[in-house]
Design a protein around this nucleic acid. Sequence first.
DNA 1: CAATTTCATTGACCAATATCAAGAATAATT
DNA 2: AATTATTCTTGATATTGGTCAATGAAATTG
Lengths: 213, 213
Amino acid sequence: MIKKLKNFYLFRHMDEAKLARLEDISNIVEYKKGTILFFEGDEAKNMIVLLDGILQVYKTDQKGNKVILHHFFPVDVIAEIVNLEHMRYPASAEFETDGRALIINYELFEKEFLKDPEVSFAFIKSLSKKIKYLENVIATNMVMNSTARVAKFICEHGHEISDLKKSHIAADLNMTPETLSRILKKLSTLGLIEKKKDEIIILDKEGLETFYL
Amino acid sequence: MIKKLKNFYLFRHMDEAKLARLEDISNIVEYKKGTILFFEGDEAKNMIVLLDGILQVYKTDQKGNKVILHHFFPVDVIAEIVNLEHMRYPASAEFETDGRALIINYELFEKEFLKDPEVSFAFIKSLSKKIKYLENVIATNMVMNSTARVAKFICEHGHEISDLKKSHIAADLNMTPETLSRILKKLSTLGLIEKKKDEIIILDKEGLETFYL
DNA sequence: CAATTTCATTGACCAATATCAAGAATAATT
DNA sequence: AATTATTCTTGATATTGGTCAATGAAATTG
């Protein structure tokens, strides 16, 4: 069970004894699709490592709309700052698929593991990865308009489009399905993409990139 | 000169020898108001610690408008991720006042200092502080509307308003001066604030908070 | 395969905020 | 104090994207 963690950078250098101890102070929980892992404002006593499934992190604006911030994929530590800073979750998290998570007693983890230079260096890496991610959220959502966000998404995730519902993509891009639909039509009219059934073909990648680069 | 650093958490536990070595691998540079410390996309060979002055960090959108992300105040490490991840600056930085910065050779710093558990723990703190900051940028700019941003600003920085030009405040809140002016008028009409010459008096803090809490 | 449900598109309209231009107030300079 | 420059406010208009409602197209179910 815990072997999977060996593949995860935070735990890679741990010997058997340490991993066993980690197992002692943690447990694995399964979640169904749609389950809320935590709500914005919740207090955190545990550190969470996502083992399986996709986790969506979002805030809710005044009108009750979701503003989607991240998607976490296995294996990832979720919201370590909340533990480090003894703060409350700044956003909510919901499982987008069935999933599993390792729930670690943070107090013990900090005491027994975090002083280890290897672990703390890995922690630094994990935090800086998160900062990069947040910078990207900001760059995408604060600096770019809807058309640019769509163009970027097509260029970076063109292949995924066939698997995802349009309404899902729209939500991830923080826009309505109507807006997405109109923008796709526009890009299609401009001859930058071709909308085939269930698929979007990029005709002019450079043209798309001019919207966001 | 370097003594000032003793007050900064990242360097607090360093002994004289270490501080001296730090001085060896770094130098202090003065900047005039309006100077660009780095541009978005620049590569970073040094780690920067802001010693004096206010540094504004921003991106530029397609229309050429600034989108202001942070203000850094002394003493703060600037954009450590850029060093840690060997990436390019994700935003530009400009001195809003005259200032000074400690420019540290990062390669040497990483080699000689970062393995030290105390330093790396402090680094973790610094990174997590930055994440909190970014979370706040997102919470403020992506999920709140203009009125909420203004209400929040008044509640949190009421005193500073007298020192700042309205157009400056508007820029920091990522809105136009016209919008700010209209919102202040609205809040004033609602009896939540009173606009005196050069000053804004909060009449009903709870009323203001309802806009953003 | 017909019926039903879900999802995507389209059009008409609305709300929030930006833009542009003019005027009013304030501050700085002579 | 008068003049000039700067900043602030106000109104008119434009733009972007959201909302609501209707229709069309796919997918699912019986």
